[in-house]
Amino acid sequence: MTVVAPEHAMTPVYEFPDSLTSVPTHYCPGCTHGIAHRLIAEVIDELAAKERTIGVASVGCSVFACRYFDVDFGQAPHGRAPAMATGIKRVAPEALVFTYQGDGDLASIGAAEILHAAVRGENITVFFINNAIYGMTGGQMAPTTLVGQKTASSPAGRSLVGQGAPLRVSELLAQVDGAAFVVRRSLHDVVQIRRAKKAIRRAFEVQEQGLGFSMVELLSSCPTNWGLKPDAALDFIRDEMVPAFPLGDFKVPEAETAGAAGAGTADSSAAGADAAGSAVAGRARRG
């Protein structure tokens, strides 16, 4: 770090997280992968879990996540991170094990692995970065690409005919009994980022409590492959992605749905600011 702290009268209230390495990320300017990394690292710091955290990186832009987190890391084949994390967690149950996967990795090639990790109630935490596109390979259609969204492999825009509608993974996994905590958050503004961090913390706590599979889906930006400036990309999340992928809590532990004080409930009421999000969250809770 080349930063010089200001005058001695000042005390730090926010500093570079311990659980990140100083390696500069390869992410494009304004890409919210960096925010997701930062939040996860901040929560690992808060839980004082750096020395017992084991991450599993995936394939895609997040392939180098292993270089950016200052914790033990494995690097799985495309889509297989939940299987690799299963192997790790089963023989290191005291470790805090998480995967970090994009939408191509998790929702397309790794659809079987994520589904069955949830079915087994595998006690791992999954961070699912949904930016509706394949970033690393240059902007091809993902399973979460929006209808009509133009990509390098859907130049006329994703069509319902032949390409289908975007896959809503959180809603899907919430149907699985083994899933203990499944929520969707967004990284498009400061309020949403703070909610995302609370959810990340809760997901790790669910794992620490041995409650089963936990996943936080994070709506994220890809300014480069969307062809938008960083700030316009955040607007795209808010205006285009959130309506297609409503924010909310799709599955939270029983006690939290019944009571009013649980972290999950607090999160979902916060997400209620988003009309669509609260409607789906409400349905999920009642269901």
Binding site: A76, P77, A83, M84, G87, I88, R90, V91, E113
Partner: peptide, 8 residues
């Protein structure tokens, strides 16, 4: 891949 994880 589970073997990969446990071996790792």
């Amino acid at each position: 891949n589970m073997v990969y994880g446990a071996a790792a």
